[in-house]
């Protein structure tokens, strides 16, 4: 090989950069996060699998509906009516009261930074109950 030193150095640098996720993880995958589901309430405004994928679009719809059309009532898939409110409905004491045990788990795992909290204030959590 001609200029073997330079070529091998180039290959090593290329390999090191392209295999970054492998040596950065080094065989230890963090476990999949588990969200804490509410104990009392059994049903959300839409079925679980739907919410898992599309909750951000439901919330976006709610925001537009409340802020732009003043329509605050949401009829859920099971016919129940809900007040469209992130803080008072979604995050009420009976449901997803703790941001750190529900929202943050998946968002942190998948690197999602929703801008809900630019305007909303998440319900207060007692510090000792935090994980």
């Amino acid at each position: 090989m001609y200029d073997g030193g330079k070529i091998i150095a180039g290959i090593i640098i290329g390999l090191a950069l392209l295999t970054f996720p492998i040596w950065y993880t080094s065989g230890r995958a963090a476990p999949k996060p588990e969200v804490k589901l509410p104990v009392k309430e059994k049903e959300c405004v839409q079925p679980g699998p739907y919410m898992k994928k599309k909750h951000m679009q439901v919330l976006d719809l709610w925001r537009d509906s409340v802020v732009r059309v003043q329509q605050r009532s949401y009829v859920a898939f099971n016919g129940k009516e809900y007040d469209m409110s992130l803080q008072n409905t979604c995050m009420s004491a009976d449901c997803h009261a703790k941001k750190s045990e529900f929202c943050d788990r998946c968002h942190n795992y998948t690197g999602v930074v929703p801008y809900c909290w630019d305007c909303h204030i998440p319900p207060k959590e007692k510090p000792e109950e935090k994980h």
């Binding site: 999949k32 996060p33 994928k53 795992y109 999602v112």
Partner: peptide
């Protein structure tokens, strides 16, 4: 839409 958490797993 996709189940991002399962995909990351």
């Amino acid at each position: 839409k996709a189940d991002v958490v399962s995909i990351k797993e």
